[in-house]
């Protein structure tokens, strides 16, 4: 696991842009939950595949995502 992403979930507007930017295709919308705004928040289930490239964070219009490298 090279990287770790955390989502400030309640700021997510469910726009899904981050899902288009992830090279390992692990950023998905969490269809099981909705956040305080009523959107399905973005999330990562398979964190071990994260390469900490930061692309998801760079395309997020609401600066929801923090990216760390191990």
């Amino acid at each position: 696991m090279a990287g770790k992403v955390t989502f400030d979930e309640n700021r997510c507007k469910g726009c899904e842009l981050c899902t288009t930017a992830c090279p390992t295709k692990i950023v998905i919308m969490d269809k099981d939950r909705i956040n305080i705004k009523g959107y399905h928040p973005a999330t990562v289930k398979e964190m071990d595949k994260c390469i900490a490239c930061g692309s998801c964070a760079r395309i997020c219009p609401d600066v929801v995502i923090k990216v760390e490298k191990l």
Partner: peptide, 27 residues
Amino acid sequence: MAVVFEKTKGLTDKPTHYCPGCTHGII
């Protein structure tokens, strides 16, 4: 854990009113 990307101090904490996916937020 080295931080690769986090929110800049140049922005306040106020959530923006922009529509979902509007790229104003990126700019």
